[in-house]
């Protein structure tokens, strides 16, 4: 752990100004991940710029009919917000599937997007890790990789993105609002997180001097036919082995629109337009779901301990789509899988 300075940003402009002056500074909001990383010597910022007081705590309707969520809205507030519960219940359930109540009280919406991987080697500074120390090698590929990725991996990295919330955001096609010295811009959630490629040290396409200000949800919340199913090694308070966000728009038994995203399997929430297209116009049944699963898992590759994730993901996709089609979403409190 290295000593750091602590400053507080008064407003968004101040935050951008402060981070521009120091390439080793980091923003801190809830700190539920960053503080751990500092303690483990994985991160060693020269300065922490506290953005938790920025006035980005509102949840408001947009003119397009969607919702704009301030980046500093705590995860817990978001999950229990009446509009989110009613219109975007899949997002609420995804958030409540993650962490613990205490952590959700602290964690910010913007920070949730920037969680770093839980790969064991990333946290252990005595082992090589390309994400932590570019060029040092990936220990997980031939190591303890039960929790690692099966999709979109590279020879440099098989880490996964640990967020539950982001999986639902991916399925909902959320848009990330950011601002930096060059001004404000938006990034589609699908383009926000990156695949590891040769630069696994970069988790996202957010520039180091940019700050997330809000997450925008489009009007469609799929509140009638959705589910978020998280499979893990104990029934709560564990990261996903595989998680699935599934949302359908049905006309009778026919699928008019489908959204499908996976967590715990890749460096980013995993979506496939082919998988969703394969569901369109189909009867919402096991045959269609199996086809979608095949598409979504196309190219999946195990690394030994995590081989089972491919089959598990396939079954989880089918089950979640079934829950969504039947309008019986997975309950968060009841751990029985319906």
């Amino acid at each position: 752990m290295t000593p750091f300075q602590y400053t507080r940003a008064n407003d968004v402009a101040d935050a951008i100004k402060q981070i521009a002056t120091d390439p080793y500074a980091k923003f801190i909001a809830g700190g539920t991940n960053l503080i751990d990383l500092i303690k483990y010597d994985v991160e060693g910022p020269s300065r922490l710029i506290d953005i938790s007081h920025l006035p980005l705590r509102s949840i408001e309707p947009t003119s397009a009919g969607g919702v704009l969520i301030g980046a500093m809205v705590p995860n817990a507030d978001l999950a229990y917000h009446p509009v989110i519960e009613e219109r975007y219940p899949m997002l609420a359930r995804a958030i409540l599937s993650g962490a613990s109540q205490q952590l959700r009280n602290m964690a910010s919406t913007g920070g949730n997007l920037l969680q770093r991987t839980r790969c064991f080697y990333f946290y252990d500074t005595a082992t090589p890790c390309n994400k932590r120390e570019p060029g040092s090698g990936c220990s997980a590929i031939d190591g303890v990789n039960r929790i690692n990725a099966i999709l979109g991996t590279s020879e440099a990295c098989i880490a996964t993105h640990p967020s539950d919330m982001c999986v639902a955001l991916a399925a909902l096609e959320a848009v990330v609002h950011v601002i930096g010295p060059a001004g404000a811009r938006t990034i589609a959630i699908a383009d926000f997180h990156r695949l590891p490629g040769n630069t696994p040290q970069r988790d996202t396409n957010l520039e180091p001097d940019e700050i997330i200000t809000a997450i925008e949800l489009p009007p469609k919340g799929f509140s009638a036919n959705y589910s978020y199913l998280k499979i893990r090694d104990r029934l709560s308070y564990a990261f996903a082995l595989v998680s699935v966000a599934a949302a359908l728009e049905l006309d009778g038994e026919t699928i008019k629109e489908a959204r499908l995203a996976l967590g715990g399997v890749a460096h980013k929430p995993w979506r496939s337009t082919a998988a969703e297209a394969a569901l369109l116009g189909q009867r919402a049944d096991a045959t269609a779901f199996a086809k979608a699963a095949d598409w979504l898992l196309h190219g999946a590759k195990g690394y030994g301990h995590n081989n089972f994730k491919i089959g598990l993901a396939r079954r989880a996709i089918m089950r979640t789509l079934d829950q969504a089609a039947r309008g019986t979403p997975q309950s968060i409190s009841d751990k029985k899988i319906r």
């Binding site: 064991f120 252990d124 220990s139 303890v144 104990r234 029934l235 709560s236 564990a238 751990k335």
Partner: peptide
């Protein structure tokens, strides 16, 4: 990780014990 001779889940987030839900 026997190659490194190290414990990889040396914390109680990744060394799982039952939680209330279990």
């Amino acid at each position: 990780d026997h190659q490194f001779g190290r414990v990889m889940n040396a914390n109680i987030a990744e060394y799982h014990v039952p939680v209330n839900a279990d």
